[in-house]
Design a protein around this nucleic acid. Sequence first.
DNA 1: GTCATTGCAAATGCTTTGCAGTGCC
DNA 2: GGCACTGCAAAGCATTTGCAATGAC
Lengths: 136, 136
Amino acid sequence: MSDLLERLREQGWRLTAQRRVVAEVLNGQHVHYTADEVHARAVERLPEIARATVYNTLSELVALGEVLEVSTDGRAKRYDPNAHHSHQHLVCSRCGTIRDVHPLGDPLATLPESERFGFAISEATVTYRGVCPNCT
Amino acid sequence: MSDLLERLREQGWRLTAQRRVVAEVLNGQHVHYTADEVHARAVERLPEIARATVYNTLSELVALGEVLEVSTDGRAKRYDPNAHHSHQHLVCSRCGTIRDVHPLGDPLATLPESERFGFAISEATVTYRGVCPNCT
DNA sequence: GTCATTGCAAATGCTTTGCAGTGCC
DNA sequence: GGCACTGCAAAGCATTTGCAATGAC
């Protein structure tokens, strides 16, 4: 976490209170907040932080590869701080809860050459969907 | 296609000019239009068709399982008429073009029991991302 | 002191909704 | 002829943008 702030400073980031708070909110395992949820939690610590600042900061973190953008459905994007450990997502089709999961094998390897159509493929994301125990 | 209209009528659908036109626009292979693109193409055949009607019709087709909703990025949803043949998507990270692809094995089978956390999993979607030949 | 960063408010893009009128069955 | 369906316009989210004020370096 403070590693994160350190890394960002090395990239020439100005370390403002707002950015620190956004980074703090995203700290933790299995965190998959929407921009609005990040903003709500950030406001608790720094009441004057603007929604636009949260959006800006999140986009920067995504661009720097420190946070992943997850669009599970057509609704608001979610932000996943677990960017340095490869994983996939398990989503509840009722309540929308997301869990990080680790499938067997490399998803990228499941697409044969004949199905690549000249694309230079760099990434494969898998989304598993089902009803979670709470919603059953 | 006319199969489709037939099936829909059997489900109690009123067969209006608007719905027919939307179904026609979605007819074909490798079609992944946004609602707006469907509307634009529908207007060519039926000038007075409203955007809201296109949205309504698309939602109904999705609910009936005749069309798949695809959200590859945080932008507009895309609609995929190829709902009856299991497939996955290959997306160009530059231009956003989508291709239907067929991976080896069953994606659902890649998640071990120990990683299912009590979810009743019913679906797994894989999105491969890379740069397409046109964008290279 | 400079210039990146912020806050605010307005604008944008996509989608949904309310409601009176239309036309399929 | 009833009521599902449509068109239109307005409302609703999620997100982006413009710009003057601020504060990290």
